[in-house]
Amino acid sequence: MLRIKNLSKIFHKDQPDEKIIFKSLNLHIQKGEFVTVIGGNGAGKSTLMNLISGSMFPDEGEIYIDNTDVTFMPEHKRAKFIGRVFQDPLKGTAPNLTIEENLSLAMLRNARRDLAFGINKENLAFFKDELSKLNLGLENRLTTKVGLLSGGQRQAVTLLMATLIKPKVLLLDEHTAALDPKSRDKILELTDKITKDEEMSTLMITHNIENALSFGSRTIMLKHGEIALDLKDNDRAQMDQHKLQDNFNF
């Protein structure tokens, strides 16, 4: 599903402050796989997300989504394959538009933005249905401006928007880090439910080692731009939080 081949990314190339993020990264994620990504600051986690989503281009290497080469495809074009949730809950929604307008925009991800009416009445029932699954009471507030919602509510809407049209790859960039504990649990629970989809591959960056092991089916640890640890199946089941923490620190 997602294949990364010999990826290299260097910031400030050939300058005194040159920083090599990735030298030659290889990663292959299967269809339906849910991979959690851990690693210290500067390990390249966010850069990896940015390279996959196209908000940054690599210096070398290739990225394939479902056998399509997206390495240098513009961000907005490859967005039809990719759903994204950012760390900052304010980044994923348009605050001055209503919930129904935001969701309508998400429904148009693969459609032409033409002169048809922006809000399709036929979609409203579907929106209500999906919103009610969030259990936040938002299904009755379709015409509320998103800017009036709390961070947790906005992140829930963002998660919904990212997956309303099922993407091939879902990228979650520390999407619970800025939330209070209660909202965080809620969003993680929703994430778990949404990622059960067998057609969609998920990459979730997290700083919480416990979550990294309890969610998803595979855990990778990035260190100095390399995959220092790749845990699946049995290895992963036998790994516990403390052992992983020790690995993290060495």
Binding site: S53, S55, P74, E75, H76, K77, A79, K80, I82, R84, F86, K91, G92, T93, A94, L105, A106, L108, R109, N110, R113, M161, A162
Partner: peptide, 9 residues
């Protein structure tokens, strides 16, 4: 940024 993530030019 959100609009780019939603596939808009």
């Amino acid at each position: 940024q959100m609009m780019r993530a939603q596939g808009a030019n």
